[in-house]
């Protein structure tokens, strides 16, 4: 049976893609951020997962406002990283795992999550930057797992509630665990933490709230479901709503997790950047 090893979180800021491209790992601005990743890479090197489920939010590459899925699941042989309009170098396609994708889609709908299936899905920085951080050289890293992208809408309100995001993750856990093949799976929750790009409040970052979220996501994710969407915008910033991806990831890890690593740094670009490794207990 498929088994979930743990969850990884990271911000997915586009500027990180450029910094990787330009090799700025020891640059004084970037070093405190990049230093958060080697312990997670060591863990991945030890456990060598077969599948990485990458929960991210599309930023206007894969989806437009003409049809905006609340939850979309990739079911493609591969996922292309296409031009987003502002000059991040494009990467080769990422190999998919369509048999597992369709199993998850069947199971999610069975559990009454009415998702959108995608046999083609262009993936943006929200998907590729985390892959590059965890598997340097991705997708050409020899240990690069096959992947399934899951995108949740944070572009246009109404966005999902935090409770719905956590419940989605719980259903995803049951879906993965019911897959008959012996596969080792990691679940990525990417995006956030606090940031706001638009309006007179642009540049808003909330360290206290980010640290509260990083603590509760380990010990008491249910407490975070009490946060309303309006409160999330107010406290995390308009784009800090990407924290929903972390909630989806957390739901997939089961009731109890062990925090193996965490890093938090302000600022990377306009964002409070959080990185975590949470290991499943069962």
């Amino acid at each position: 049976m498929a088994r979930i090893l743990g969850g990884l979180t990271t911000s997915h800021i586009p500027a990180v893609g450029n910094a990787i491209h330009n090799g700025l790992f020891d640059d004084p601005y970037w070093k405190p951020f990049f230093d958060g990743y080697p312990p997670i890479r060591d863990w991945l090197d030890e456990h060598k997962p077969d599948i990485a489920i990458n929960i991210y939010n599309d930023h206007g590459l894969g989806f437009f406002l003409d049809k905006m899925p609340t939850f979309a699941i990739g079911a493609a042989q591969e996922y292309r990283n296409e031009d987003e309009g502002w000059g991040i170098p494009q990467l080769p396609p990422f190999p998919g795992a369509p048999e597992l994708s369709w199993h998850i889609i069947e199971s999610m709908v069975e559990q009454e999550f009415d998702i959108t299936s995608c046999q083609e899905l262009a993936v943006d920085h929200g998907f590729v930057v985390p892959m590059q951080l965890f598997w340097p050289g991705a997708p050409n890293n020899p240990d690069m797992p096959r992947t399934i992208p899951i995108s949740a809408n944070t572009v246009q309100h109404p966005i999902p509630t935090l409770k719905r995001a956590l419940d989605f993750g719980k259903a995803l856990r049951r879906a993965i665990q019911s897959y008959p093949e012996d596969l080792k799976v990691v679940v990525l929750g990417t995006g956030g933490l606090s940031h706001q790009l638009d309006g007179e409040r642009a540049g808003f970052i909330n360290k206290d709230f980010d640290q509260y979220c990083m603590e509760k996501i380990v010990t008491d994710p249910e407490a975070l479901t009490k946060i309303s969407r309006r409160e999330l915008v107010e406290k995390a910033g308009a784009q800090g709503t990407e924290f929903l991806m972390w909630m989806m990831m957390r739901g997939a890890l089961g009731d109890t997790v062990v925090q193996r690593h965490a890093n938090y740094h302000i600022p990377i670009s306009n964002t409070g950047a959080g990185t975590m490794l949470l290991e499943c207990v069962e």
């Binding site: 246009q156 309006g199 409040r201």
Partner: peptide, 16 residues
Amino acid sequence: HHSPIPGTTIFDGKMA
């Protein structure tokens, strides 16, 4: 649907 947050526009159906 959304009470205002200063300096912030909620991009909802109306704005979309």
